[in-house]
Design a protein around this nucleic acid. Structure first.
Ligand SMILES: [Mn+2]
Ligand SMILES: [Mn+2]
Ligand SMILES: [Mn+2]
Ligand SMILES: [Mn+2]
Lengths: 222, 222
DNA sequence: ATATTTTTTTTGACTTGTCTAAAAATAATA
DNA sequence: TATTATTTTTAGACAAGTCAAAAAAAATAT
């Protein structure tokens, strides 16, 4: 009924890989995400399979079972709620909270996470703009697009990040680009796919292709 | 520099045993507190000794080293701060929080516990009346005595409990005896060492010897 | 001082989770 | 299709943590 932290971490990795790619997660992909060896992954897949948390066929990759999917969803819910707590209540910045949340997500007890949810005002998104599933595992969807897909003249509001690294989050802070910042694409440079954008206070920024491919915006109908 | 949850739990057990008894902790006492076997304890004592977290001589019992004492104190600080959070912020009752705190106390990161401390208003006592050491490991002391030591006519205010079990805490709730409740000893029954006391609203209660030996009060000079 | 009881340690085994190196299966290429 | 490269699994080993049973030490009783 309760799973080890290692098992939970594997389930989360499998979830995010097979979600993103839309297909079974390979041993190597899991090993890369977990920063471990393929041999260790194979071992763990055998164990998770015995517990019916995953569907596993040798050499064929792996997908989550119904119960594995539930565990992974609950884990993500906890991770993101704790991140909201750390930022909203304790005053941490969005680049400081991930490692703490990696630990806090393993604290067991439905009552705790549900009270936390209530205390935080049932937030639907975490400090990085990622959706928080509710107690029944339902996700809130909202339309968003990578900034790199906008055309000249398009306007949008920053809603999330694809890259969650400290380096990127701190870069955005330096540029004054927090969640909710509004942007208008002034000019596109085909040479390097960089964009010039206008943001709050009529400030202009030039954002590289890499930045634009890691920043999500909700487009505004002008 | 960082220790496993198992190591931390042993250090905490050794702390509370050698603190309470005022002498070295025996293998059996540790085993009883940890709900494990003496063989497991001996194994762990060897490991903790190698890491210089305890002073250990075979057959002679064990005491914490300076660094072991620091780890144990930090752990107790975290445990009790999280308990304050769970009661004050999330609305749990004092009998519901211990198991969650047992998990939360192992979350690593000085920044986290110190921000939590600040968020909670730097509380000096936890929901059970136990003192919370500060970031430097300093304890707040306050005079308190077991209710069983009071004489007829003495008055006091409930400051803490010796027994932390759910059963006792819920019994106190039923009797309306929370921290801060004021009491006056009306009558002592030598036969079974029970007490009749008057509490708020001039309500009278009869408290057994067992209850009186598990309830701390600060005596009021009348 | 000797015998008995209690406490503690040792021994050997087991589980979880990890790793390296080697073997096997699959995929890609010629 | 045969060869090569990549991916995955197997095999064997190790560390942490646990336990039951046996041996040793210490404490207690006679
Ligand atoms: Mn995170
Ligand atoms: Mn996040
Ligand atoms: Mn507690
Ligand atoms: Mn407490």
């Amino acid at each position: 009924m309760t799973h080890s932290q290692a098992e939970e971490n594997y389930l989360k990795a499998i979830f995010s890989i097979s979600e993103k790619e839309g297909k079974a997660a390979s041993t190597n992909a899991i090993a890369a995400m977990m920063q471990t060896t393929a041999a260790s992954v194979t071992d763990m897949l055998r164990r998770l399979s015995e517990k019916n948390l995953i569907a596993y066929e040798k050499y064929r990759g792996v997908t989550l079972s119904e119960s594995g999917h539930k565990v992974a969803t609950a884990l993500i819910r906890k991770h993101r709620l704790w991140e909201v707590f750390l930022v909203d209540k304790l005053g941490f910045t969005w680049d400081e909270v991930h490692e703490f949340a990696e630990q806090l997500e393993h604290v067991q007890g439905d009552a705790l996470v549900n009270r936390l949810d209530q205390f935080l005002g049932n937030p639907k998104f975490d400090p990085h703009g990622d959706p928080i599933p509710d107690a029944q595992g339902r996700w809130t969807h909202r339309p968003q697009a990578l900034l790199s897909t906008l055309q000249t003249g398009d306007r949008g509001v920053v809603t999330g990040v694809e890259d969650h690294t400290t380096a990127f989050l701190q870069y955005l802070d330096q540029q004054g680009l927090a969640l909710g910042a509004s942007l208008e694409v002034i000019e596109r440079f085909p040479y390097d796919h960089s964009l010039r954008v206008r943001t709050h206070g009529d400030r202009e920024l030039v954002l590289s292709e890499k930045v634009c491919q890691n920043l999500y915006v909700r487009t505004l109908n002008t």
